[in-house]
Each structure stands twice: as structure tokens, then as C-alpha cells.
């Protein structure tokens, strides 16, 4: 679905220095995958995300979405329709003063006929569990609800990929749970490819594959079990492994034999109780 080849991105900062945000990224994301990208701040996660729907263009290398090159201008609107983006601050991505109108914004932009928009809006709101709020004013909703409206706004464009750039960074624990559940559901039930950027390790556990980024490079990737059991390497990349993985690693170091991959509390409890 998405194929990133030798992607480099260099930008000029406020002082006129050239900064390399991405140094040759190679990444293939098959259709239907739920991929999590983690990494410390300044690692290039958001920069990479913005290449996926042509908000940023590669300095060199290629970013191919569904066979379309993001660098070609004629592909721009097709790509943006296929790849939806959800950003960190829910307030700053809601356009209209009524939930329903905001969800309709995307389809209206691409010229979907009026009666069909209504159907899309209803389906999108149902998919994120916000149907009963269709006529509400967004500023009266909670952070998690607003972010679900933002997801619905993207869904109404019927994308094949949704890129979420730290969607839970500004939410409370309740809101975070809502978003992760919604995203997982969209992936499983609708088969939408998910690119989920986060710095919460517990959220990355839900993904099919985890990619660790540091200083504009992909350090390593694999299933959540593979990635999170490499406690020391994670720490080198400026990340903290989940507590269970850390405990397991310490136990192993002090000579207690444990099955190799333990990353969740439940797995740890089960092994220790045996």
C-alpha cells in the first residue's frame, strides 16, 4: 500500500542551517497492516508521517502510495483522499461549529453529491461511536470525543490508510483508551491500514508491527514482542520499554530462566505464577 524508498528530507531551520530530518528511510507498509512508529522527540516520526499524504515532499528518494508517487503534483488530491491524517490537537483540526458539518467537510471538498455525503457522515460517525453527537457543538465535547470526531472527518473521505500523528498526546487516560479502541476496530473491521505514531509504548503493543525511529533513521522493527523485549536497545534510542518487559529483562539478568518474550503485565504474571 505504501512504499518508502531511501527517503531523505532536509529542511532549513530558522537560523538558516540545513537540518536533515530523515536520512534514507526504507519502509513498506502492506494493505491492512496496523503499524506503530515510536521514537523519542525529534526522531523524525512526524516528518515521515507528513510525507505519506504529500504534506511534505522528499528531498530525495521516493514515497509511493497505492502506486502513486507523492512527488507528482497531479496525484496530490488522490493521495490525500486515500491517506487520511489525524493530528495531535483535536481542537485545531475541527473546522465547523457543528459535529455533522465538520465530518461533511472532507466529502464536500472533493465534490461528493449532497445526498451521498449525508450517508457517509452517518456511517463515519457510527464507526467512531459518535452518532448521538451529530448535532452538537464540538467545543463542548471531551478531548477523546473531539479526536474521534476528527477521525470520523477523515473516515468520511473513505480512505484506505489513516495516519495518526500522536493522536493521544493531549488526551486523558480515558480519551486515550477510546482512541486506541476506535483505531483498532477500524483496522480489524474495515481493513483500513493504520500508521500510528505515538510515544506511549502501551499503545504500540496493539500494533501488528512496531518501528523504532531515532535521529531520522529506523533503528529496528518487528512485532511488539520482538521490539519490546530488546530493553537495552530501546533505552539507547531514548525510549522506555514497558514495565513488564523491563522486569523480565532484569530477572533474566539475575539468572532466572524465563521464556524469551514478555512484554505485557499479564504475560509476566502468568509466567511468574507458574
Amino acid at each position: 500500500m505504501i512504499s518508502v524508498k531511501e527517503l531523505k528530507h532536509i529542511y532549513t531551520d530558522a537560523d538558516g542551517h540545513e537540518v536533515s530530518a530523515l536520512n534514507g528511510i526504507n519502509l513498506d507498509i502492506p494493505a491492512g497492516e496496523f503499524i506503530a512508529i515510536i521514537g523519542a522527540n525529534g526522531g523524525g516520526k512526524s516528518t515521515l508521517a507528513r510525507h505519506l499524504n504529500a504534506l511534505l515532499l522528499p528531498t530525495s528518494g521516493k514515497c509511493i502510495v497505492d502506486g502513486l508517487d507523492t512527488a507528482e503534483e497531479k496525484n496530490l488530491w488522490d493521495i490525500r483522499q486515500h491517506v487520511g491524517m489525524v493530528f495531535q490537537n483535536p481542537d485545531n483540526q475541527i473546522v465547523a461549529a457543528i459535529v455533522e458539518e465538520d465530518v461533511a467537510f472532507g466529502p464536500e471538498n472533493v465534490g461528493v453529491p449532497g445526498p451521498e455525503i449525508k450517508g457517509r457522515v452517518d456511517r463515519a460517525l457510527a464507526a467512531v461511536g459518535m452518532s448521538e453527537y451529530a448535532k452538537h457543538a464540538p467545543h463542548l465535547l471531551s478531548g477523546g470525543q473531539k479526536q474521534r470526531i476528527a477521525i470520523a472527518g477523515v473516515l468520511a473521505l473513505e480512505p484506505r490508510v489513516i495516519v495518526l500523528d500522536e493522536p493521544t498526546a493531549m488526551l486523558d487516560p480515558q480519551g486515550r483508551k477510546e482512541i486506541v479502541r476506535t483505531v483498532k476496530q477500524l483496522n480489524k473491521e474495515k481493513g483500513i491500514t493504520i500508521v500510528y505514531i505515538t510515544h506511549y509504548m502501551t499503545e504500540a503493543l496493539e500494533a501488528d508491527r512496531v518501528v523504532v525511529m531515532e535521529k531520522g533513521n529506523i533503528r529496528f522493527s518487528g512485532t511488539p514482542h520482538e521490539v519490546f523485549s530488546r530493553v537495552d536497545e530501546l533505552e539507547k534510542a531514548g525510549l522506555e520499554a514497558p514495565l513488564a518487559a523491563k522486569i523480565a529483562s532484569e530477572l533474566r539478568k539475575s539468572g532466572i530462566k524465563l521464556p524469551k518474550e514478555i512484554i505485557t503485565d499479564e504475560e509476566l504474571a502468568e509466567v511468574l505464577c507458574r
Binding site: W77, R80, E101, E108, N109, G111, V112, P113, G114, K118
Partner: peptide, 14 residues
């Protein structure tokens, strides 16, 4: 822009 906004041209209304 990510939601394909490009001005009033070719826009429909719900």
C-alpha cells in the same frame, strides 16, 4: 489541506 480543501471550486454541500 489534508482533508482535500482547495477553495470553493468544485465543492458540494451536504
Amino acid at each position: 489541506e489534508s482533508r482535500c480543501y482547495r477553495g470553493g471550486e468544485g465543492r458540494t454541500r451536504m
